[in-house]
Design a protein around this nucleic acid. Structure first.
Lengths: 344, 344
DNA sequence: TTGTAGGCGTTATCAG
DNA sequence: CTGATAACGCCTACAA
């Protein structure tokens, strides 16, 4: 591997001239410039990014830590982040905490020791010591998807409360009054917000809400199958189910199929996130589509802004909206069910 | 941010002592060791990975470039790679060439300039200058999923020929004799191998094969919809379709639904890669399951072996096998179709 | 057992 | 316009 020294020798100039030619950082005579450029090409010189970063105290690298890479939601986010990083000349180091707080902690150290210029994070748990230190040190940090409390940091999130509200309102308008929900962990802001939207919809429809119809699906397909099975075991089982991410939607459908029930004749379903395969399901799935790719783009752009802003950093909270897409998996309340089952 | 110098000053020792204590690279008296460790903790010292790498000419970082991160196939691979990297103490820089040769070229330079210790790549096109130089320089490189010609490099692939063979044999055994296929690009080894397996199955069943029933779906859902629509427009349309990745399976199903045909009554379908949502499809999808996570693990392990092997590097070709999972989407030839349509 | 000093490959300051 | 030279933060002979 050739170094600037080699290029300098080959071109018969000093290393500083090589550096200045390649970075266009001062005027160099045509003759020398030509020789340097030729030598660089001949030797296939590629500057050593580590040495460079060490000197200029900047790595032109962004860190991105997602909490679950097997969730299509996050891969869409990653693509958005990546496109922006590419456009703005940043490299990207991607880590997957896999919903493991320890792994998040570890990767955080890895990323910082690699001197990333900024970090995008979908936090797996609560705020912790390492994160607090980061913001205290004014390290460029943007959280996405999930917000956490007790920490003053910029975030980009989706409007989960409104999205859940819209989904449940749709079911209410179809006449449903016993509406189940499979939720993610309430320890995540996303889980809480979706529950809040669900409850507001019930409240506005004056449907009594004892929380019995909220199952915790743990954001996984398996968890949702268990949770929805429990809902279906209730004496007064729901006539509709709202699943709050794509994996849990699958789990909910599995549970429903296991009971031999069909959608939407026996029970209506609304999913969260819009997925490619929802179009080939029969019936096609009613979903709340979320702008996942845009979430990634916005997060990356905000982070780069934060990095470039020299002044006092004002933390920003950006919220992106979603969209309800009505398909055939949600329908009216089945005959003989619904109103008469109402406890109120 | 604290440096080794700061720690040394705080502990009242020299920087070399700090280094030796933290790396356990020579025996240090208890007293000093304690002081250094305490100081490091107090200052929250984290070694600068760039400076360290610059010195020891090793970054303990692996590069991973996938060709399409939105394809669940590759995210499973990524998880496998990541787990191994984590276990073996390597960091991971992940790039997404997005099937764009230019982007692949760019990212290649980025990764190399960042001094990754080795690189895993699912190449988007043919072998090119940059790759050839890499192997000539004996740079640790492992290709996965796709092999390319004209370059002597270690690879980890799936047995696509056999997988396709098994899928088509299954259809043959059900009585099908007009079997369509949606293929990826034949410029990829995966596409070629799957076509080869398809053809071998036809040959062994003594089914005439004029290649008319092979549609190129371009590995995308949209491409597959177009390709399968064309197959369904044929005067003697296939009674079964073999789709060769998950996105193209979706596209195939969409095309079939657009025609108002149902599976497997009107037409049988076999998909490639096994997906979570295939279980909630009705009918459930017959698929060839591929060990994607294992592909990632094996690739990372092979690369790390290559990096550690001091001697002459013998290139290795590892091939992993798949498994046919029969579900309800493939059935017998529909009444009134099949044999009498046979041209031969 | 400990410290000093040189250098990894760059960039940038300071003379010429 | 150009070239020595001193960092950047770390590791590691070599010396003490």
């Amino acid at each position: 591997v050739a170094t600037a020294r080699d290029v300098a020798r080959q071109a018969g100039v000093s290393v500083s001239t090589v550096s200045h030619v390649l970075n266009e950082t001062r005027t160099v005579s045509d003759a020398l410039r030509q020789r340097v450029q030729q030598a660089a090409r001949d030797l296939e010189y590629e500057p050593n990014a580590m040495a460079r970063s060490l000197r200029i105290r900047r790595s032109d690298t962004l860190g991105l830590m997602v909490s679950d890479l097997s969730n299509p939601f996050f891969t869409a986010v990653v693509r958005g982040v990546e496109d922006v990083a590419q456009e703005r000349g940043y490299a990207l180091i991607l880590c997957n905490s896999n919903e493991d707080p320890l792994r998040e902690r570890d990767y955080l150290r890895v990323l910082l020791s690699r001197q990333v210029d900024g970090l995008m994070l979908s936090p797996v748990g609560q705020s912790h010591e390492s994160l607090i230190r980061l913001v205290q040190d004014r390290f460029p940090l943007v959280l996405f998807d999930r917000d956490i409390s007790g920490i003053d940091v910029s975030t980009v999130t989706l409007d989960n409360e409104r999205a859940a509200f819209a989904a449940v309102c749709h079911l209410v308008e179809l006449g449903h009054r016993r509406i189940g929900m499979v939720s993610g962990l309430p320890s995540h802001s996303t889980g809480r917000d979706r529950i809040a939207g669900y409850r507001r919809a019930l409240r506005e429809a004056e449907i009594p809400d004892d929380g019995q119809l909220i199952g915790v699906g743990n954001s996984t397909s398996e968890g949702a199958t268990v949770a929805v099975s429990a809902l279906l075991d209730l004496a007064e089982r729901p006539t509709a189910v709202f699943a709050t991410n794509s994996l849990m939607t699958i789990g909910a459908l599995i549970a429903i199929q296991q009971r031999g029930l069909s959608v939407p004749e026996d029970i209506s379903v609304v999913g969260f996130d819009d997925f490619l395969w929802s179009a080939v399901l029969r019936p096609r799935l009613t979903t709340v589509a979320q702008p996942t790719y845009e979430l990634g783009r916005t997060t990356a752009e905000l982070l780069i802004d934060v990095i470039h802003s020299k002044g006092p950093v004002t933390t920003r909270k950006i919220v992106l909206g979603g969209q309800l897409i009505v398909r055939e998996s949600s329908g009216p309340v089945p005959e003989g069910r619904g109103l008469h089952l109402e406890p109120a």
